[in-house]
Amino acid sequence: MNIVVCVKQTFDTEAKIVFDSQGRIDPNGVNLIVNPYDEFALEEGIRLKEKFGGTVTAVSMGGARAQEALRTALAMGADKALLVSDPALNDADEWVSTQALAQAISKIPYDIILAGRVAIDDGSSQVCVRLAEELHLPSVSTVVKFSVEGNKATAVREIDGGTETLEIELPVVLTAQKGINGNEPRYPSVAGIMKAKKKELKTMTLADLGLAALEPKMKISKYDLPTPRQAGKKVPGEPAAAAQELVKLLHEEAKVL
C-alpha cells in the first residue's frame, strides 16, 4: 500500500509572535515543529504500512528548514520524503499550496493520502480537502477511526454533536483528528534517527514540477496582534461569600446572566 502523508512545519505551540520591519510575522529564532495533527497522520500512515506493507512518502512544502520536519517524519518511519521549495511560494495561499502539492503528489503512487485536520499556524483547514478536489479523490475530514479492507475503507469522522461513518473506495484523502485510532505519535528512536539520515529526501522547485509561478487567490493586507487581556478582579472572601459576590458581578456588572 502506498501512502503519502502531508507534513507541514509550523511554529512551536509556545512561540511568541513577533513582526519584522515589514509588518510580517518573523520566523527568525522561532522553534519549529511538525504540525501536531500531521504527527497523528504520520503515525496512522506508518501503522498502515506496518500492517499492509508498501511505502510511506512524507511530502512538505516550505522553506529549507522544512527539511527538519521531513527528517523527523523519516525518523518516525516514513520511507522517503519530498520537499517542494521555491522562493516563488513565499506568499502562497491555500490555493497555491494545493497546486504545488497536488502536482508533486501526482508523480507519486498513492492509495491513501493522509494529512492533518488543520495546520496550527494558519488555522486554515483547507489544503488537504482542496488537494482531494484537485486530484479528483474523495476525502473524509476529521477522521477519528479508520480501517482498510481490500480496496475499501471505513472511516469515522467527527461531526458537530456526534460522529458519522463513511464507506469509501481507495484512493482517498483523510485528515487526521488528534488521537486517530486511539494512537499517540511515536517518538523517533535513536536507531530511527540514524536510519533517517540515509533515506531519500528530495527537493523540487516549481520548475522541477513543471509549474510557473502561481498567483494567490487571497491576499493578506495586514497583520496585527490581539489586545492583551487584562487580569480582572479576584473576588475575595470566604468561599460562600465569594461565590455570592461572583454571581452578583456576573449578573450586574458583566450582565451575562
Binding site: 490555493w95 483547507q126 480537502v129 482542496r130 484537485e134 461531526i159 458537530d160
Partner: peptide, 23 residues
C-alpha cells in the same frame, strides 16, 4: 465554520477556483 462548513468550503472553493477565508 461548523464541521460541515470546514469540510465543504475548501472543496467548493477549489472547484470554483477561488479563495477561501476560513474561521
Amino acid at each position: 465554520n461548523s464541521a460541515a462548513g470546514r469540510d465543504l468550503a475548501p472543496r467548493l472553493a477549489q472547484r470554483l477556483g477561488v479563495g477561501l477565508a476560513s474561521d
